[in-house]
């Protein structure tokens, strides 16, 4: 199977959470997954555009999906909200041909090629756990996690609503669990694994958002987690970058290192920590990783 994708990192992956994009590219290099840039792709509009301008949001999605389709590839992303937004539009295009036709008509008047709804929207996590040969993947693991207790945090838009996704979602999803086991870690079972990181109410309901971050992290810690991983740049932002802010709001110390799944995978593959952007994480995972028996790889000459 050819593992060639039109790569759609999303606005956060291109800007504030660019370490997730670095890590994604680094692990894909090693696994022979080709990520092709999408020069025409714009922001997908996230949860908001569907509320403000429902028809325009479908036009934007059709233009993005059409660019991938024209290159003959499925689209692959590392942001759950992009995944959900584009999967939702794609699901509608595949199941409601009238809508696709109307949107294509408007897009074509603006010079945008028609979309034929022939591609799938993929998450890089699914590609790695379902499409890459698992034995080949295991061979790349130079530094198995030696029983490290890892909290899988899936994020809402990787899971729900289940019917729109091109892979197992809802309660059937077990991608992160399988990845953790394959890396030699132990997936801890805790209440927050399928809950909300609060990203989309970060500005409108800040106290509640921080409450969600604290609740999820603390439930993971109580279950023994030493580190948390997510498949989403926005969950990374909430659970990682905002964790310190949440600590102040709820008045409790949390101190749970949070990483993008591609970063932890890269660490286990022995990829240079600078290339994985580990230094950009708010809660430093290095002490706990060193304690569990394997310091990170750091070559002074990278870059």
């Amino acid at each position: 199977m050819s593992l060639d994708f039109a790569f759609y990192p999303g606005c956060a992956g291109k800007q504030v959470q660019k370490e997730a994009e670095w890590a994604a590219r680094a692990v894909c290099d090693q696994l022979g997954i080709k990520l092709h840039d999408m020069p025409r792709a714009t922001c997908c509009g996230a949860v908001s555009l569907r509320e403000t301008k429902p028809a325009f949001s479908l036009a934007v999605a059709a233009r993005i999906l059409g660019e991938a389709e024209a290159s003959g590839r499925d689209l692959c992303t590392i942001c759950n909200t992009c995944l959900q937004t584009l999967s939702h539009a794609n699901y509608r295009f595949k199941t409601e041909p009238d809508i696709l036709e109307q949107i294509n008509k408007a897009n074509q008047q603006a010079g945008i090629p028609a979309y034929r709804a022939s591609i799938k929207v993929q998450h890089l996590l699914w590609v790695i756990t379902d499409q890459v040969d698992q034995k080949a993947l295991k061979d790349k693991i130079k530094k198995p996690l030696a029983g490290l207790k890892v909290a899988p945090f899936y994020g809402c838009h990787n899971l729900r609503p289940a019917e729109i996704f091109a892979s197992n979602a809802g309660e059937k999803a077990d991608h992160l669990h399988r990845l953790i086991t394959l890396l030699g870690g132990e997936a801890v079972s805790y209440d927050g694994h399928d809950k909300c990181c609060g990203f989309h109410v970060m500005l409108s309901d800040p106290a509640e958002m921080r409450g969600m971050v604290a609740k999820n992290c603390l439930s993971a810690k109580e279950a023994g987690a030493q580190v948390m991983i997510t498949p989403c740049t926005l969950c990374d932002m909430s659970m990682g970058a905002y964790q310190g802010i949440a600590e102040k709001t709820v008045g409790k110390s949390i101190n749970l290192p949070e990483m993008n799944f591609a970063q932890l995978l890269g660490v286990a593959m022995g990829i240079d920590e600078a290339r994985l952007g580990v230094h950009r994480l708010h809660v430093d995972p290095k002490p706990i990783l060193a304690q569990t028996g394997y310091p990170l790889t750091r070559s002074p000459c990278w870059r």
């Binding site: 809402c156 729900r160 309660e171 809950k195 109410v201 958002m209």
Partner: peptide
């Protein structure tokens, strides 16, 4: 104030 988590849909 809805966080758009879709838990209610499931």
């Amino acid at each position: 104030s809805c966080a758009r988590c879709a838990m209610c849909v499931e």
